[in-house]
């Protein structure tokens, strides 16, 4: 319209400055709103509402579990480092019910048995032989179809005498059934259709129904695992050499003193040769 000011005929730099100014103003505005509503340094006008919403999703059990884990790390006194964990969907199905520390019955060896879960999957020890199939043990990594190693626990660091630190944090020894010439994995992971379906509906099942479904996960699984000697022996079921273990590591694993201590000794007292206190 003639005579009307031309609103948009500004130099480009004006738009750029205006844009930057708007961003800054918007950021400050967001900060002010946050300060008034949620920040612990302000009146926290929306915090009661936030707490109300959180309370609906809160799980007392979950909170207690997390609190206990934090407490235990502090209670332990000795400093520890955290280790990477597998994503939930590729964890073996056993972990749904049995957790990271499944052994608890035998006070004498429960921690020792739990320690073994670091090196192999549950089925390696709890596998039951299947008619018409032999069991073969291989390295298994849910994140790598063909893990090449080096694998944790297979060799010692000659400098420190400790086990060599490796990049592959997740490979474990797992059993496979050899049927004819074909290898079939003997383990189920949590993204297997049956496992996923179970997780979805387990809360709706009666205890009896749940037991019935669980039996499907325990096909070819025996409740009591192998004895120590089944692996820690010259004629053990694991071919350590084929699995890539070093010679001295193989010797230690086959002649492992702990296995002997647990199975053979009644008592093994630590000699107290240099104690200053009178006996």
């Amino acid at each position: 319209m003639p005579g009307e000011p031309k609103r948009l005929e500004h130099p480009k730099s004006v738009y750029i400055i205006g844009f930057i100014f708007k961003i800054i103003t918007l950021s400050v505005l967001i900060a002010v709103v946050y300060q008034i509503t949620l920040s612990p340094h302000g009146p926290q006008l929306l915090v009661p509402l936030q707490k109300k919403m959180e309370a609906k999703q809160k799980s007392a059990i979950m909170e207690e579990v997390k609190r206990q884990e934090e407490y235990e790390i502090h209670r332990h006194f000795h400093n520890i480092v955290s280790y990477p964990k597998l994503p939930e969907n590729v964890q073996p199905v056993c972990y749904i019910c049995h957790s990271d520390y499944p052994h608890s019955k035998s006070k004498k060896v429960r921690a020792m048995l739990n320690m073994h879960t670091q090196f192999f999957v549950c089925e390696t020890c709890h596998i039951e032989e299947k008619y018409g199939a032999s069991v073969v043990y291989k390295w298994y990594n849910p994140l790598d179809k063909d893990p090449k190693g080096p694998f944790f626990g297979t060799s010692y660091d000659p400098q420190t005498g400790n086990l060599v630190e490796v990049e592959d944090q997740f490979s474990k020894i797992a059993p496979y059934f050899r049927v004819g010439g074909e290898l079939q994995s003997a383990l189920q992971i949590q993204d297997a259709p049956l496992a996923q379906d179970y997780v979805k509906v387990r809360d709706k099942l009666t205890p009896e129904q749940r037991d019935n479904v669980k039996k499907k996960f325990h096909v070819n699984i025996k409740p009591k695992g192998h004895d120590c000697k089944k692996c820690h022996d010259e004629k053990g079921i694991l071919d350590f050499k084929k699995l890539g273990y070093s010679e001295n590591r193989i010797m230690d694993l086959k002649q492992l003193n702990i296995a002997g201590m647990i199975t053979k000794y009644e008592k093994f007292y630590i000699p107290n040769l240099f104690s200053d206190s009178p006996q």
């Binding site: 206990q68 884990e69 235990e72 790390i73 332990h76 520890i80 280790y83 957790s99 990271d100 520390y101 052994h103 608890s104 429960r110 921690a111 020792m112 739990n114 320690m115 073994h116 879960t117 670091q118 090196f119």
Partner: peptide
């Protein structure tokens, strides 16, 4: 690191 257990009272022990 795996040498840990859950005790009779359900408490984790590292």
């Amino acid at each position: 690191p795996g040498l840990s257990r859950v005790d009779e009272k359900g408490k984790l022990r590292l």
